[in-house]
Amino acid sequence: MRDLTYYVAVSADGFIAGPSGEFDAFLFEGDHMAGIWEKYRGTAPTDLAAAAGLAVDGGPFDTVLMGWNTYAVGLPAQPDPYRHLRQIVFSREHEAPDGAAGVELTDRDPVEVVRELKAEDGAGIWLCGGGALAAVLADEIDRLVLKINPVLFGDGVRLFGDRPYRPAALRPVAVTPYESGVVLAEYARG
Rank of each mutant, 00 (worst) to 15 (best):
P110T: 00
C128D: 12
D13K: 02
V10Y: 04
I16D: 04
A96P: 12
H94L: 02
D107F: 11
A169W: 14
F61I: 11
R163D: 00
V56N: 07
V183R: 03
A55W: 13
L65D: 00
T46H: 10
N149L: 11
G124V: 10
L4V: 09
R163E: 01
D98K: 13
D62L: 09
I125W: 09
V182S: 03
T70L: 04
D80L: 01
A100D: 05
L133M: 06
V73L: 07
V64P: 01
Y40L: 08
A25D: 13
P19K: 10
F160K: 04
Y71D: 04
Y82E: 05
G67R: 01
L184G: 01
V173Y: 10
C128K: 08
A101Y: 01
V151I: 15
P97G: 07
I125R: 02
L144I: 04
V103D: 01
G122Y: 00
F23M: 13
A138D: 13
G154C: 02
E179H: 14
A100P: 11
R163G: 02
V56T: 15
D109I: 05
P172Y: 14
I88G: 09
F23I: 12
L117H: 01
T5A: 15
K39S: 10
V89K: 07
S180F: 12
E186R: 09
G59Q: 04
P177S: 10
A17S: 12
R163M: 00
L85D: 03
R158V: 13
E112D: 14
T5D: 12
P150E: 06
V10W: 06
P79Y: 00
R108S: 13
T5L: 04
L170W: 15
A132E: 13
D142Q: 08
A51G: 05
E95D: 13
A55R: 12
L159C: 01
L48I: 14
F61W: 11
V73D: 00
A49E: 04
G190D: 15
